[in-house]
Amino acid sequence: MSPAALTDTLSLENEQLSVRLRPGQGAKLCSLLDRRTGRDWLIPSQLPGGVYLQPTCGDDFSRFDTSGFDDCFPTVSACKAPGMDIQWPDHGELWSRPWEVTREGASLLARIDGQAWPYTFSRRVSLEGDTLCLDYTLDNRADRPFPNLWSAHPLLKVSPGMKLWLPGSPGSAFLNAPSDPAFGSHGEARPWPELLPGVDFSTVQPRSLGRAVKVFFPRVQEGTCGILEPQSGEALTFTWNQAELPHLGLWLCYGGWPDDGRPGHLTVALEPCTGLPDRLDEAAEGGTCLMLPPGGRAAWSLRLRSHHLHSRS
């Protein structure tokens, strides 16, 4: 079938779930609705009136809708590409550009070619019962190795008291460029879940906390994490192959971002990723990014299951 127009919102649904995406805004997943409960797991546009503006490559991510599920690639934080004269923009170059999205049977295939480097990035979206399936491929069409990192960026709709669970029993988390010195310094290990004295960050905090922080759990031993609403038992569980996605980032925003005078957001993002930290140049220096050979292909998958649990801590 022909690709969707850039202004379209495309959707898939079954008896359990409905998912919508916006081809013109980076093929953003703008809704993941559990049709049985009415819970949408993704936050809507944070702009006045809930509008979606059309960004261009290189724009400041914080000035746009800051919502839904974007793909951050080939970096998260803006930086100079290692070993080449390319400046990768804030949150990468995919979220701000239109994608080609084609409906193929019961799935949506979204693809885009690189702007500053010859690559092709694709994501197939499908539903299997209560599970959203995301299947990715990346092709390096250059005659040189391609250093890159990908991170999921699902901004979840949360409320205070919801519970987070993480792979295994992480004893510490590593800070990623914290803007608030109360947390510590970039790269510093902090005890999990007490990132600040007396605050249990495995429980979603109120917006009034006025803090935001990004941390990493490197080399996860188990490819699963999730969030739970204890009273209702509603849960969203992420699963992946840790050989494909060896790291996990966690963005916790409890009124502390944006920090330019606008109201702070209330959201959490569980971010399986191919590399860390958020700056590709640092990841390349530390050997923690994906180095795709000339003509090479990488593939990975992520599953998000909306279901019910009686309890999980």
Rank of each mutant, 00 (worst) to 15 (best):
T7Q: 13
W117T: 00
R22T: 00
L21T: 07
L17T: 13
T9F: 10
G49N: 09
D65K: 02
P82I: 07
G286Y: 03
Q46C: 06
D260A: 04
F201V: 01
R97A: 07
E285Y: 09
W41T: 12
F217S: 04
L53N: 01
L309P: 01
N140Q: 07
S311H: 15
L280Q: 01
E234F: 10
T137M: 12
S122H: 07
Q205H: 12
C133E: 13
K163C: 10
V268L: 08
C273M: 14
P272L: 04
Y52V: 09
G264E: 02
S311E: 13
T239E: 09
E93F: 01
S31P: 04
P154I: 06
L32S: 12
F201E: 03
T75R: 02
A116R: 00
E271S: 00
V199Y: 11
P48G: 08
F217N: 05
E100R: 12
F216L: 02
L6Y: 10
G24P: 12
T239V: 01
R20N: 01
T267G: 00
L94Y: 08
L209A: 12
A106Y: 00
R141G: 07
F73C: 06
P246K: 09
D34C: 15
A5M: 06
D139H: 14
K163V: 13
N148M: 15
E229I: 09
